[in-house]
Write a protein that binds this DNA or RNA. Structure first.
Lengths: 337, 337
DNA sequence: GTGAAAGCGCTAACAG
DNA sequence: CTGTTAGCGCTTTCAC
């Protein structure tokens, strides 16, 4: 199935070395024989066997991608962009999904290394010194995305902390003084990589600290509650949002939560933003179908993808880990706060 | 980087043949030497080089996937399911995206074949005898999904014609007698694969034909308009939905269009379903954030993925193209008709 | 039981 | 300019 250089060599009455020179237009071959060889190759629809080439060259022109899943719209866009850019640059993508299972993630990585992927783009759930040791042992360029691991591996993403800080600053400016922060469980720290969520959480606190100084000269803090658990809606319902003075802003660390929260609040008869303010983070594109429009933080997932691919390829081809600057983000003024 | 069987052989003072027997527990080796070899292999963290194995075995344990993109939620789910199932069964996925570009699609296919993917799951935009000839020339098992090509290649999907027919039957039963059918351009037929859209369109017409017989004994047809163009919203606006008697049902061949249409109608002050009925197709999961709930046809994209993977693997491993029965679908009663 | 050797298809270094 | 040869790391067949 498919003709090989050896067969071409026989057909042309030359050696495989010569065929190789012709096919990969390497120097040291006469125009005449080259033309003849190319002609024969074309006639027989010669297509080099890339697995053989990989073995010989020691490079597979393959990029391994490790993500949680593609349910999340953002991950889908990310994968899309990575594939696009990679193939533009001559690489093909091995997609592997972990389902956020630490062991599965290790399997994926191992698998990719065994298949000799030239580099890997990783959104990790694993974390910790031991995991880093394992990563180092893979001896493969790795670029992290969405979840930073450590300075040793380039990270593509925004400054989540700064972004959240700015966003909450907007709420303060609008006059909000009571806050509920809703996010996924942060307790797994150390076992599971929640770098991004953690940064946002820090950004939230910093914004309030700075705000407290500015607003009341360091006097009275703001009223805040934190909900960081799976059944966040239940927890939220137990809170009396109307108690006290002033309107509450529910700061959600991601749009997915914000949408659920908004839905739930409204089903309880709370008007948004009249009775309660809600903000999200991520600007997932589902938002365009939702009213009132959610106020949120936007960043470009596609850019994450192309940047991650570019950085990884730079590393692969230049041999040294590149440093990647934080990408841009911006506050989206909706109608929900 | 990484130890090889040759090195293990030297370390153990045996031949590589023996090492191979130990590592792949093949018969013809004493328990004792086997144990010793495995011990050494474990110590040195031996991981077989899968590119080398591929070359030697003539199988890569790789499945190529060719889709349009991952923007569409359904494709993302599809890709997700394919990856999951494939890796469960020992295969890894090569993801390639065509962006609906026929030439790009051919590139992807060629690339996958050169990389010796054991089989390919394809959602094709190309179509026609010549393309089929090319596909045949690839000499690789191919399972089609979402867009059928011909009987030569197994197709995973639902009976779109039947499903649309049933759905429109629901509308007739609800009393609708005026219809606007909205779908992507159908004019590209022959050049571009629009099998699915075509089937739905046929289903729509059949439903009305059957309905005409049933309702008025073959007398008077229903009032219908068809919009099959990129700027379908503009076209729709030009229609006077209120004219004539009875309420109009806008039958959209996909939810994406239905959502846009619904949004547009409401921005024009039309109430759904009081003034106009709208139905979609696909039951994309964005719908859960939309009210009124869209009436639509549901099918399980994940099932497409696992079935496609299973069928392809069956073909790869058993050597003969499997036949795949149509998958299940069901009408979702929403509030939009 | 074990070893030797011939591939898989391509690359790359070295002779001529 | 062209041919030869030795790999890449693993599999597989055939001797011993």
């Amino acid at each position: 199935m498919g003709i090989t250089i050896k067969q071409i060599a026989e057909l042309c009455g030359v050696s495989i070395g010569t065929v190789d020179r012709a096919l990969n237009d390497r120097p040291g071959i006469s125009e005449k024989t080259k033309r003849r060889i190319l002609e024969v190759a074309r006639e027989h629809q010669y297509r080099p066997d890339l697995t053989a080439r990989s073995l010989a060259r020691g490079r597979t022109m393959t990029i391994g991608v490790v993500l949680f899943d593609l349910y999340n719209r953002s991950f889908a866009q990310l994968a899309n962009a990575i594939e696009r850019r990679s193939r533009e640059r001559g690489y093909i993508v091995h997609l592997t999904l972990t389902g956020k299972d630490p062991e599965m993630e290790k399997n994926c990585l191992r698998q990719l290394v065994q298949r000799k992927a030239d580099g890997i783009i990783l959104c990790s759930v694993n974390e910790g010194a031991r995991f880093e040791e394992e990563l180092r042992g893979l001896l493969t360029p790795i670029v992290t995305v969405c979840n930073r691991i450590s300075d040793r591996w380039p990270y593509v993403g925004i400054d989540d902390r700064g972004a959240m800080k700015e966003a909450v600053g907007q709420l303060l400016r609008k006059g909000y003084r009571r806050f509920v922060y809703v996010c996924p469980p942060l307790a797994d720290r150390g076992r599971v990589n929640i770098h991004t969520q953690e940064q946002r959480w820090i950004g939230f606190r910093e914004a309030l600290e700075d705000g407290a100084d500015a607003v009341s000269g360091g006097q009275g803090k703001f009223e805040t509650a934190v909900i960081a658990q799976r059944d966040y809606l239940d927890a939220l319902r137990r809170l009396d949002l109307a108690a006290g003075t002033g309107k509450t802003a529910i700061v959600c660390s991601c749009d997915a939560y914000a949408l659920e929260v908004m839905h739930d609040c409204r089903s309880r008869g709370l008007r948004v933003p009249e009775d309660v303010g809600i903000m999200g983070f991520d600007n997932i594109d589902m938002l365009k179908y939702v009213s009132p429009r959610l106020s949120t933080v936007h960043y470009d997932m596609e850019e994450f993808g192309t940047r991650a691919a570019d950085s990884l390829i730079a590393w692969i081809e230049r041999g040294e880990a590149p440093s990647v600057p934080s990408l841009a983000y911006r506050w989206i003024e909706g109608e929900s706060v």
